[in-house]
Simulated assay, not measured.
Amino acid sequence: MSKFSASDAAFVGFRLVREHPRTVAVWAVLMTVLSLISSTITIKLAGPQLTEFMAISADKDASPETMLAVMGGLAPLMGVSLIYSLALYSVILAAVNRMVLQPGDNRSAYLRFGPDEVRQAGALILVNLILLAVYFAAILVSAILLGIGIAAGGGAIAGLAGLIGFVGVACLMIYFAVRLSFASTMTFDTGRIAIKSSWTMTKGHVGAMLGAYVLATVMAVIVYLLVMTIVAAVGVIASGGITGLGGLFEPDMTSLETFFTPIGVARAVFAGVISVLTSLIVFSPAPEIYRILKAGGAAPVETGV
């Protein structure tokens, strides 16, 4: 059976940043521009409603009717955000897969928008639908267990049943997520949406893969906090005090005028840089592990959706 180092796979994102600094810079500029564009669209579609929603969410006395009424005004924004996120992550995943599996194909900074990206969108939709179905099924079973615990006497039995149900749902979701984590990479590599193939190829590697993904996530959080600390320090120096940082982390999206301030633009730059770094760190372990396993002859070939 092919082997790989979970720690090496977890740190492959840092290697990509070191080997492709120009690509990272291009991605950061593009992500900053996209951040500004998406913020503009958000404000135009539902700036005041979004501000109201945030205020009501923080109000413990807000009624469900009020919350639903405000959420209704956010429906257009949610639809646009869903499409935008699907397109964005399809392009990013394809680019990361291309960078790891086809490092020589670096034209346009590994970014494309073609058949590979369309297939990535299809794989994303299918994987999320599967995970959603698993989640609802697990919640149903957990509710049944809780009901049995209550019927059996409640109290400690019901609490134990609830705990078992919660842990079981979490473990099941993690297991399915790991088993399906090759779907993006195998879809890119084979040219067809590969859900079953991911399930087959990850068999026997769940523990090591989970370790790599957890370590990569921890590294991404550390990088995020580090960059945020640096930006906050610069912001304190530039604004003359900590009170000037409010617009950096909680922007006023009521209107374009209140958002597009120096602090607002700085926030967009911060978002662009950090999204590129964290995306490379979090998304690169899967294609790297796949590359190693495939080189060892572990890759199934026929099974797609």
Rank of each mutant, 00 (worst) to 15 (best):
I193Q: 01
D59S: 13
R192K: 15
F176R: 06
A123R: 03
A95I: 00
D116F: 11
P21I: 02
G191C: 07
T40N: 07
M228R: 13
R291T: 01
Y84H: 15
L74D: 00
L226W: 13
L30F: 07
G147E: 03
S39W: 12
V24M: 03
L101E: 00
T254Q: 15
M228D: 12
A170M: 14
Q49R: 14
V24F: 02
F182R: 08
V167W: 02
P300E: 09
A75R: 09
L16P: 00
R192D: 10
I237G: 14
L16V: 01
I157P: 01
S279R: 00
E19P: 06
M209C: 03
T229Q: 09
G296E: 13
F113C: 04
K294Q: 13
V178K: 13
K60D: 12
P21H: 03
D8N: 10
A271F: 10
L277E: 06
A75T: 15
V221M: 12
S181G: 15
A62N: 02
A170G: 01
M67Y: 07
L225V: 13
Y135H: 13
T229H: 10
V100H: 07
G297H: 08
K196L: 14
L256I: 13
S85Y: 09
I281K: 10
E288I: 03
V96H: 00
S35Y: 12
L145F: 04
V273M: 08
L36K: 12
I193F: 00
D189I: 09
G191I: 06
M228Q: 14
A238G: 12
R291L: 11
I139K: 08
T258G: 07
A194C: 14
V169L: 14
V276M: 03
R119W: 05
T258C: 06
P285S: 04
M201S: 01
E52M: 10
G272I: 11
T185Q: 05
N97T: 08
L146M: 05
K203Q: 09
L124W: 11
A143I: 08
I37F: 15
A298K: 02
R291E: 06
I148W: 08
S2W: 07
A220W: 07
P251L: 09
A161L: 01
A216F: 03
E302L: 12
G272K: 12
G165A: 03
P287C: 03
A238K: 12
R107G: 07
V282A: 04
